[in-house]
Design a protein around this nucleic acid. Structure first.
Lengths: 145, 145
DNA sequence: TATGATTAAATCGTACACGATTCAAATTAC
DNA sequence: GTAATTTGAATCGTGTACGATTTAATCATA
């Protein structure tokens, strides 16, 4: 019988390692643009919908203000985005893409797609993994304690 | 046609989020023991094989000294492990489990298994995901640039 | 309408994670 | 047998990531 408490038989570790691999792969692609992997995820979210509040951005990315506030500040310092406090509700801060982020969008996504394609992942494999990971996440979030 | 550059259609993001979910789930279980999730992974590795060098540990966990050295130091401070510089080769540092880690092993793993079981993941689903993630990692590591 | 509760960011403290550099010990090459 | 190289940890700087607290603005309500 297999030992389920072995490191290499742990699903958590497989996910942990895969996340690390993605991090490394994306980092190498994004470094020439002066972007980190999490910063790229922020851009992905903003390319979909620009001008969202920090809280909304956090909801999309599953990140709190403790992570996002300094990260967005760094991205503002490097001219990717701009923070704008709302006039109607001064508690809210809206994040807007800067020209640089709009102009570079194609160059960045092209390089990313190219890198992913170089991994030779089958479309079917890709979609199946997506579906299974989403199902797993759902179970983890809804687990009965 | 689906937009593959959407955040929620990104495999990288699904993996990133799932890793975050595991982190949160395991953290809640491990907190009463005064352990973090990465520290638990270190214990998993050492429970399998005790007395390995920092480098060997790093190879198992895919972590560099920049991460492991301070982490193991913290675990030494909290009496989980002990660092011992080799007499034969003074460059090497061996990591040994402390009594606390041996004694608490069952209590810790029981709680972890319990938490995972509460997620109601099918065995088949679990194994399929493991296999697919491992295949994906292999492709990412061996990609032709 | 004052006040108590809620909300959105910011801030703080701790802990990874990584690449690059440094340092000392061991190995090798000449 | 000394010099050059390699190796294993440690250190450094930057950047997430999270829970908890703080602060200021808004909302709810008596």
């Amino acid at each position: 019988m297999k030992d389920f408490m072995t490191l290499k038989n742990q699903l958590c570790f497989a996910v942990y390692e895969t996340a690390g691999e993605f991090n490394k792969l994306y980092s190498s692609v994004l470094q020439p643009f002066g972007l980190t992997y999490p910063q790229y995820l922020v851009l992905l979210a903003l390319w979909e919908q620009d001008g969202v509040t920090l809280k909304e951005l956090g909801a999309k990315l599953n990140l709190g203000t403790g992570t996002l506030t300094p990260m967005v500040s760094r991205m503002e310092a490097s001219d990717w985005v701009k923070k704008q406090r709302s006039k109607e509700d001064e508690r809210k801060v809206y994040i807007y893409l800067q020209e640089k982020a709009v102009k570079e969008r194609n160059a960045i996504t092209s390089k990313v797609v190219e890198a992913i394609q170089s991994c030779q992942i089958e479309l079917k494999e890709y979609e199946q993994l997506m579906q299974q990971l989403n199902a797993l996440q759902k179970k983890m979030r809804e687990r009965q304690v």
